[in-house]
Design a binder for these strands. Structure first.
Lengths: 217, 217
DNA sequence: GTTGACTTTCAACGTTTGTTGAATTTAATT
DNA sequence: AATTAAATTCAACAAACGTTGAAAGTCAAC
């Protein structure tokens, strides 16, 4: 047996995480009960508390599970960009693209698990109760590296402008991945909120134009 | 007594609405109990159910109370714009401005009630459970008029592009008024999320540039 | 086959939840 | 002053909540 082999991870623990992920994404922390999770995962009620301590521990475990994978994917895209760029560094479009593309790559958009995870992050990000704390905790280091790259691409920018621009990007991204169905209704079905590729292709130029308008010259 | 005089509205009913507004904004529908509302409003527990039927009725009443005022303010701004514009109609910047400015005007930004209300709408808008339904119900007619104006200002636009652009605007707006404190932490205090005027002054050019980039020519 | 650590189940705990029917108070009308 | 409707309080309900201690099960190591 290889020295770093993990103990056999029981299936049930992951089933709990999957079920909690989907439920928290749709109903939020307070809208989900431990019994809903247990029923959905087809697992005994007490098992979630055993594995994760309490409800909050389960919530954190769900958030943490995919955070590192996502952060790494984003950082890899940024590093690759930097290594291929000239002395001036990558362009605004390229940086925004590196920030967004990992959410579509590797079949994430077709994987229900990742889909629920992004919905959950969207909900957390715009929640007064969790938004500031949790997003900072899990995603700040990566976001700061992207901010640095943007500062280099827009050397004359006022930092305040730059932060607001990122904030607008974050908001657009958040609502898009929340999958509320609002755009479907507003457009009478012309636009599908599930069309993440269509959203991505438009978000990159939309946001890049905004950054340049405010932060260039 | 004037013929259209309203019956004397008891103070308590409004106190309940105010308390519920603040609490729902911070903790969401499921994060608030009827007892929290009653305690905060300093009112008997049963009174909220008496006035609004049940918890959901209270939630709807909170959302509805300021919806019409807000919608009217936005429509007035749009109508005024149209009447002053030439035959080509108002510009993209002017339309976006008319969409956003009512949220700052009339002291709304300093009124805790309105502030909580916008926080609540932000939370509703990005929630999977309520986002599609409630936003459509309360705000669609107004949004559609703004979309029409934007179509006129961007006559060559593909409607799909236009809807996505509005979606990005809606997301940026939502996160900004959610007041999560995230931008404060990310910027190490350089940017204050309470600075709605600063956000407004940057959102208008940011979003307008995005609309033009995608929808012009 | 026994041990021992981990996993899972069971049953129950004390709270808190939303809601309601009946009683009481308030305020306007007759 | 009597009447009536609305507003408010009180007490309590059944249901659902998160959590936990003890029992039962599982499985590899010895």
């Amino acid at each position: 047996m290889p020295e770093n082999a993990k103990k056999t991870v029981p299936k049930r623990k992951d089933r709990i995480l999957d079920a909690a992920e989907a439920l928290f994404a749709k109903h939020g922390f307070d809208g989900v009960s431990m019994r809903m999770v247990a029923d959905s995962a087809e697992v005994d009620l007490a098992l979630s508390s055993y594995h994760f301590g309490n409800k909050r521990g389960l919530f954190d475990a769900v958030l943490m599970r995919r955070a590192e994978v996502w952060n790494t994917a984003r950082l890899d895209a940024l590093e690759k960009l930097k290594s291929e760029a000239g002395t001036n560094g990558p362009s605004v479009e390229e940086i925004i693209d590196a920030f967004l593309r990992p959410m579509l790559a590797n079949g994430y958009q077709d994987d229900p698990g990742w889909r629920h995870y992004f919905e959950l992050v969207a909900q957390v990000n715009s929640s007064f109760e969790w938004g500031g704390q949790l997003m900072t905790k899990y995603f700040d280091p990566v976001v700061r590296k992207f901010m640095d790259a943007l500062k280099q691409a827009l050397p004359d920018a006022d930092p305040v402008d730059l932060y607001w621009c990122y904030h607008f990007l974050s908001g657009a991204l958040t609502l898009t991945f929340a999958h509320t169905g609002r755009i479907d209704q507003l457009s009478d079905g012309v636009v599908k909120s599930e069309d993440m590729l269509g959203a991505y292709e438009r978000m990159v130029p939309f946001v890049s134009a905004g950054f340049k308008k405010l932060c260039e010259k």
